[in-house]
């Protein structure tokens, strides 16, 4: 793992990988989105609104997956002090928050015609809203903290915050089992899926497409932080040279 602690070595992989993730991700999204809107039939009970599944589920997956990655990065920074872990955590926060907001918004848009309400304070929706606030708190905490001044790493407090916030992930996952909810129960589990195959395959494409796009966005944001760090380091050296 420490072999990639060197930003130069990381960039040698990240630079060619970014356009590939972006290109393949967008292609999968176009095909999956087109199939979800035009090709597959409407769902038997919910009708056309079930098509929102193809943007809602990937958003939920990336909102939760984003925080899980962010917490792992926080742990790696705390335990091994890997210099890229803090940079990765910072890079994940904004797209993670965006997908969490999208999950809430598309869920609300789905809920209005299906349940007859935009919002319900049940376990699933409330715990997802908590995740949105956790992201907002993390972004506020890491903007201008000591870690940012020290090459984009995370402060100890921000890394611990990321780890503690991860408690919410299993709560979101199990909320529809633990509490009564308007939200449907788990449709896709390790044992299989209750969604018919005819409706399921575009979901695979959009989940993969959004995941690749998420990866591309994280790499872009990591590259930006590394470039900013290099500029700051060079300017510091110039200032030191002039001072001597």
């Amino acid at each position: 793992m420490h072999a990639y602690a060197n930003p130069t070595r990381f960039l040698a992989i990240a630079k060619p990988l970014t356009p590939w993730l972006l290109g393949v991700g967008l292609l999968l999204l176009l095909v999956g989105g087109w199939a979800g809107l035009m090709l597959v039939p409407g769902e038997a009970k919910q009708g056309e609104t079930a098509r929102i599944l193809y943007v809602h589920v990937p958003s939920a997956w990336l909102g939760m997956g984003g925080w899980t990655s962010l917490a792992i990065a926080g742990l790696v920074q705390l335990v091994w002090r890997h210099p890229l872990a803090g940079i990765a955590a910072r890079a994940i926060a904004v797209p993670g928050m965006m997908f969490t907001a999208l999950c809430l918004a598309t869920g609300s848009i789905w809920g209005r015609p299906t349940w007859g309400t935009w919002w319900e304070w049940d376990g699933r929706m409330t715990s997802m809203l908590v995740l949105l606030f956790l992201y907002a708190g993390f972004i506020a905490l890491t903007n201008g903290d000591e870690g940012q001044k020290q090459g984009g790493t995370l402060s100890r407090g921000a890394a611990i915050y990321a780890l503690v916030g991860a408690i919410n992930i299993p709560i979101i996952n199990r909320s529809v089992v633990w509490w009564n909810s308007l939200h449907q129960g788990p449709s896709i589990t390790l044992r299989g899926s209750s969604i018919d195959g005819a409706l399921l395959w575009p979901l695979g494409l959009t989940v993969l497409g959004f995941s690749l796009l998420f990866g591309a966005i994280v790499l872009m944001r990591m590259r930006r932080i590394i470039a900013d760090n290099r500029v700051a380091a060079r300017l510091r050296r110039l200032a030191d040279d002039e001072g001597n």
Binding site: L37, T49, I52, V55, H56
Partner: peptide, 9 residues
Amino acid sequence: YVAAAYGLT
């Protein structure tokens, strides 16, 4: 509603 969800995304 479908269009709104896709458009927002």
